[in-house]
């Protein structure tokens, strides 16, 4: 069994009576690229800060690379990279000095890798961090966190406010390290996560709504279109399966989202519920559509 790089049990944190993270149970398998997504204010940053021992949890327990998150210190940070849009960097340093300053802190610092990252990100060595654009600043931050080949890379909203080219560069840089590094990346931007993640978790109002492998998730969600010969009628008496959400009825057509799609079973259920079915088509959904579906299903007004 592959050990988890991150394991959380009922991790909770409140600020002034507002529950920012509520009994978070999260597992990030070693070697995974885990995308933690959710709207702004969902609790992603607080969760990450608890994992990095930046803030103390009110309750619960977490281990990161086998270490209790409350005990994470210098020794663990030689194996962990942390990049956050909210981090304050020593802006007076030049990119070159930042790299040379950080090198002695890390026993596993790899000069060749550092040079490669600087070249890859096209970072000007003699420019101060405060004079870098936001994108370049983020690249410098990422380069300084990848040069020691960390076992775990934690990225908190790394793509926020970046132009597409820079995002592409960052994603490439992250993917290049994925072979040797477990990655936890939070974002409210699903498009980027979709290109990156092998696993995904969705947080909302401090609660992790679900967490699973990306392939499983995308495989189980389908938009199903049912064509019927006569005017379609919604089946009543509680016969509508709970896994079918967001139904739309039009003359001769019923469309819904199946959150547990299985071609055989779905087809069977459709033919049981509808009369005169002339065709069934199942279309894959982009991640964004899956999340919208889930978010609406979870809200009081959502679902069926």
């Amino acid at each position: 069994m592959i050990p988890n790089a991150i394991h959380c049990e009922d991790l909770s944190k409140s600020y002034g009576g507002v529950r920012a993270v509520d009994h978070l149970r999260l597992e990030v398998p070693a070697g995974a690229i885990y995308g933690l997504v959710g709207p702004n204010g969902a609790g992603k940053t607080t969760a990450i800060k608890m994992l990095m021992n930046i803030v103390r949890p009110d309750a619960g327990h977490a281990t990161v690379l086998g270490c209790d998150s409350r005990q994470i210190g210098p020794e663990q940070f030689t194996r962990i990279g942390y990049v956050s849009e909210n981090q304050h960097m020593p802006d007076w340093m030049t990119v070159g000095y930042l790299m040379s300053y950080l090198k002695p802190f890390y026993p596993r610092w790899d000069d060749a890798r550092a040079d490669e990252l600087l070249r890859q990100f096209d970072l000007p060595l003699d420019r101060k961090l405060k004079n870098l654009s936001r994108g370049m600043w983020m690249k410098a931050s990422l380069a300084s966190s990848l040069a020691y080949r960390p076992d775990l890379l934690v990225l908190d909203e790394p793509f926020s406010g970046l132009d597409p080219l820079v995002r592409e560069d960052l994603i490439q840089g992250i993917l290049d390290s994925a072979d040797e590094t477990t990655i936890l990346c939070s974002s409210h931007d699903l498009a980027e996560i979709e290109t990156l993640a092998s696993h995904i978790g969705y947080m909302e109002r401090g609660i992790l709504r679900f967490s699973e492998e990306m392939d499983t998730l995308t495989a189980r969600f389908r938009v199903v279109e049912v064509t019927v010969g006569t005017a379609a009628l919604m089946p009543g008496n509680g016969r509508w399966p709970a896994r079918w959400t967001r139904p739309e009825i039009a003359p001769s057509l019923v469309r819904f989202v199946d959150s547990m799609y299985d071609a055989e079973r779905t087809d069977l259920d459709i033919r049981e519920l509808f009369e005169g079915v002339t065709g069934v088509a199942a279309h894959p959904m982009p991640l964004k559509a899956i999340f919208l579906t889930m978010a609406r299903s979870a809200s009081p007004k959502g679902g069926r």
Partner: peptide, 18 residues
């Protein structure tokens, strides 16, 4: 204040500083 202690966004707190 080159390495401030209060706060959660400081650069040094997620680096191997003793």
């Amino acid at each position: 204040h080159a390495e401030p202690i209060p706060g959660t966004g400081q650069f040094w707190i997620t680096r191997p500083y003793r």
